[in-house]
Design a protein around this nucleic acid. Structure first.
Length: 360
DNA sequence: AAGCGCAGCAACCGCAGTGTT
DNA sequence: CAACACTGCGGTTGCTGCGCT
């Protein structure tokens, strides 16, 4: 049994609003407010409109300070970044962009941004494929047929170098575009986040970890000792996901805790300080979203594979999720910070000191 | 100039969550 | 505590304008 309709559909006007209707609605709300009852509102002012329609018209068009027109580069970046972290929570994304409505952002994403980013991604995939073929030919030429039986001839999914986790639309191979980096940084600053290149406080309980990376490429103070991670994972006390990811904890547990597992993995207290400035809601969303991804990864890899990092088909699990191709675009995610660590685990000892830096 | 296809945007629909009785 | 009313949200639809042939 469905819900009763919110209004008598036979007696309500549908379609575009006329200037007269707009004027009536605007004048009434500016004078009296909505009265907390949208359903009754159209009758009060003599509009043959559904209350929901009035609400939508007000929120998306008539409300003061609504910003119409082209989106800026910074707005693009914010939308993309938040979308990859929290998904299609348009109202929350809109809350970060004053003057923009959720409907506006949704339309903009569906009609332009999505295409723009997917086009970019396609180009990058082609470039990667081309460069892999070149490398493969080069290696063949230099050392003959080096493939052992059973080895899979395919491009390595994981980067062999410590990962760059940019706040941009670029892939992990590309340096972040300064503007993108800057704009997202501005958002985090606006939300109260702290950046490693703002200042470098070491919390009294944190382990001083030398970071070989250029800090400007790792905007948040969220370093983690990868060797330690690997050891803890191999000890199999807790799965890697639960051992150091915030996703199995509440925000407060994460931000207040020094240890994420039972094996004395000293994780700096400020590991997730970049999230401090987010609203609780936004943080919860980011955490829970990444938990979903991680659950997906665990399901795909199996816990054992996640521990020993032996899976060879990792890329598809994320890319085939409902989040689709967008996830491989390289926007900041907790999980993408995690994945490269997993990949590098088997080589961790050969790298010596190697660190996985998280972008949030 | 007319027809067609496409992109962008406004508006609608239905479900889920929350408050009230 | 259940039923109902209302709001908020995200997905989808359909209209409109523009460019191309």
């Amino acid at each position: 049994m469905g819900r009763a309709p919110c209004c008598d559909k036979a007696n309500v006007k549908k379609g575009p609003w006329s200037p007269e209707e707009d004027a009536k609605l605007k004048a009434y709300i500016e004078e009296n407010g909505t009265g907390g009852n949208w359903i009754a509102l159209p009758q009060k002012i003599g509009l043959k409109r559904c209350g929901k329609s009035c609400r939508l018209r007000w929120l998306n068009y008539l409300r003061p300070n609504i910003k119409h027109g082209a989106f800026s580069e910074e707005e693009d970046n914010i939308i993309c970044s938040l979308y990859t972290n929290i998904g299609s929570r348009w109202s929350i994304i809109a809350a970060q962009l004053p003057g923009r409505t959720d409907n506006d952002i949704k339309n903009y994403w569906n009609t332009r941004l999505k295409k723009k980013l997917l086009g970019k991604q396609r180009k990058e995939q082609q470039a990667r494929r081309a460069s892999w073929l070149t490398v493969k030919q080069e290696m063949k030429r230099e050392s003959g047929d080096y493939m052992l039986p059973g080895m899979v001839s395919q491009p390595p999914y994981w980067p062999q170098q410590p990962p760059v986790i940019p706040f941009t639309t670029t892939t992990n191979q590309d340096p972040p575009l300064p503007n993108d980096q800057e704009s997202i940084k501005n958002l985090f600053i606006k939300l109260g986040g702290r950046f490693s290149d703002d200042h470098h406080p070491q919390s009294s309980t944190s382990t001083p970890i030398p970071n070989p990376m250029n800090s400007s490429r790792y905007p948040l103070d969220v370093s983690f000792a990868q060797d330690q991670l690997y050891e803890n994972s191999m000890n199999n006390t807790v799965s890697p996901a639960s051992s150091f990811s915030p996703i199995n904890s509440t925000c407060s547990q994460v931000t207040n805790s020094t240890h994420f597992n039972t094996n004395e993995a000293a994780v700096p207290n400020d590991m997730f300080q970049g999230l401090d400035g987010f609203t609780d809601e936004l943080r919860e969303l980011i955490y829970s979203n990444n938990q979903q991804i991680m659950n997906g990864l665990e399901g795909f890899y199996g816990t054992d594979n996640m521990v020993d990092g032996s899976s060879t088909t990792g890329s598809s699990s994320v890319e085939s999720s409902s989040w689709g191709d967008i996830y491989s675009l390289g926007f900041p995610q907790l999980v993408t910070g995690f994945e490269p660590c997993q990949q590098n685990m088997p080589q961790a000892s050969t790298y010596g000191e190697q660190y996985c830096t998280w972008a949030v």
